[in-house]
């Protein structure tokens, strides 16, 4: 057979060796399911912490104190200027130096939590820290764009009514900035779900690492990477649906009383009196 044709045939049929059964067997394998939990846990925690860091960085970088401003700029410069994988490896290698690795491992935190397979807490923390710190640098830009899009007069008005700077920020500026922040934040979380796979490099048994473990024991790398891919697709698809809902709520008409009256703080934050449907978002919010 023509070698070129042969090549394409191999690509399509994988020389008849690709085993769908392995895929189905491992799709719901307990290790894999546990890996999904770890992945989601890492992503949610890192996004939360990263967002808080981003918020903190906003105030550092807007501070009147030159030293604080310098630290903020340095932080963003460093974490945006080095690869996430290097940051993960670096932090993981760092923990033993400060004598934290062993005591953390010995807590057997995840096993005590009921996980079948223990995950070394030191690596988990190093991974989580790297993901969070890195995310903080990116969220800093997003938070800055969001807050700076709010008219200074709003804070001024809040002050003139007797709110302190912080109260004005919390009750007046931030809820409005959230409209601008949430869409890019959603995109960040989508990336985060996938970026957690990088911590497989330090043997945290998240989704990819769990799949990899079986890939080696079964000599079926392609099949188990398929399993991982399927689950990543499921996660990102679910998130995309949630994100769409979230953004719709931001844009939804104010006239919908369910969004605005007597809701929880969360409802108020999400439903904070959006514009009439069809009115464009404030500048900077629609860049995706």
């Amino acid at each position: 057979m023509n070698p070129i044709l042969q090549f394409f045939q191999n690509v399509v049929t994988l020389r008849g060796t690709y085993d769908w059964n392995t895929v189905f067997t491992f799709l719901f394998y307990p290790d894999i399911l546990q890996g999904i939990i770890i992945t989601v846990l890492l992503a949610v925690l890192a996004q939360l912490i990263g967002t808080l860091i981003g918020l903190l960085l906003y105030f550092t970088r807007r501070s009147s104190n030159g030293v604080l401003r310098g630290i903020g700029e340095l932080y963003v410069w460093f974490f945006r200027g080095t690869p996430l994988l290097v940051q993960i490896l670096f932090l993981n290698a760092f923990l033993p130096y400060i004598g934290l690795a062993r005591p953390l491992i010995q807590t057997h935190f995840f096993r005590n939590l009921g996980f079948q397979q223990d995950i070394p807490l030191d690596a988990f923390i190093a991974g989580l820290a790297a993901l969070s710190l890195n995310e903080g640098a990116y969220m800093a830009e997003i938070v800055r764009a969001g807050i700076d899009s709010i008219d200074l007069g709003q804070l001024e008005a809040a002050k003139s009514l007797g709110m302190t700077y912080w109260l004005g920020m919390r009750r007046i500026v931030l809820p409005q900035a959230l409209r601008v922040i949430i869409p890019p934040l959603g995109n960040e979380f989508n990336s985060m779900l996938k970026n957690t796979s990088l911590v497989s490099a330090i043997s945290v048994a998240e989704l990819l690492e769990a799949a990899q473990a079986h890939a080696f024991s079964q000599f079926r790398p392609l099949e188990l990477l398929t399993v991982a891919s399927i689950w990543y697709l499921v996660l990102t698809t679910i998130w995309t649906l949630i994100q769409r809902q979230l953004e719709r709520r931001i844009n939804v008409s104010n006239l919908d009383p369910a969004l605005t009256s007597g809701g929880s703080w969360w409802k108020r934050m999400i439903g904070f009196g959006g514009r009439e449907t069809g009115v464009p978002m404030p500048a900077g919010a629609d860049h995706h």
């Binding site: 007069g153 709003q154 001024e156 008005a157 809040a158 003139s160 007046i172 809820p175 409209r179 605005t260």
Partner: peptide
Amino acid sequence: GYVIQQVGLFPHLS
């Protein structure tokens, strides 16, 4: 009480 030049209502509040 302070009525601000350019109104200054909070758009996210009823």
